[in-house]
Amino acid sequence: MAELTATRAGAPQDLASQDAADVSRVLSGDVAAFEGIVRRWQGPLVNMAWRYCRDRNRAEEMAQDALVRAWRGLASWRRESSFSTWLFALAANVYRSELKRFPTVNLPLEEVAEPIRPAQQHDELHERQMGERLRRAVLTLPPRYREPVILFYFHEMDMGSAARTLRMPEGTMKARLARARELLRRRFPHLNELTASAQRGSEIGD
């Protein structure tokens, strides 16, 4: 994700040096310098929060909390890891504790229903519905599996970045992801049919 943001805002090195310069200015007492950090990271942090709660307003509130917490704790960034790694790890902590205080989904995984007879409907609308249900189902996973899934896809399937954000070994991350996928597949047994139909559709299209 950091790399993605960097491609939007400039080279990754530029972004890192901008972050480092802004952090130094904030630490020396220039509060306004924090605005640069907020502008650069607002998008990723709001999107990360969105994946945790799937509620736009709440996602913005959670991202705000994370940024304010980051401002308070800027001195604790040791510059050994990249600023983005530190910021995402802090945000993950904020989001986790926020959702622990006020859980967003009360449905158990077993109650998230898959659409009926999905293989018979090959349209895009159906796939979109299935996608939304699957994303909601992610929120019903037990926390130890939920967060690896959220962060793995947030980091665009970069296992290393996701593991660093959770401060967890990559092996553990892989194992938890595999278990989460297994739970989701059990809940959505028609997912493979959906893929097969999408494949057929793309072949016809070609």
């Binding site: 605005e35 502008r39 607002q42 709001v46 736009r56 913005e60 699957l134 665009e156 997912l191």
Partner: peptide
């Protein structure tokens, strides 16, 4: 691709509201 990967990596991208900063 794994359908789960395909669906979950295609999540919508939110643009923060104008007053966020």
């Amino acid at each position: 691709f794994d359908p789960i990967d395909r669906i979950l990596s295609a999540d919508e991208q939110l643009v923060p509201s104008s007053g966020f900063v």
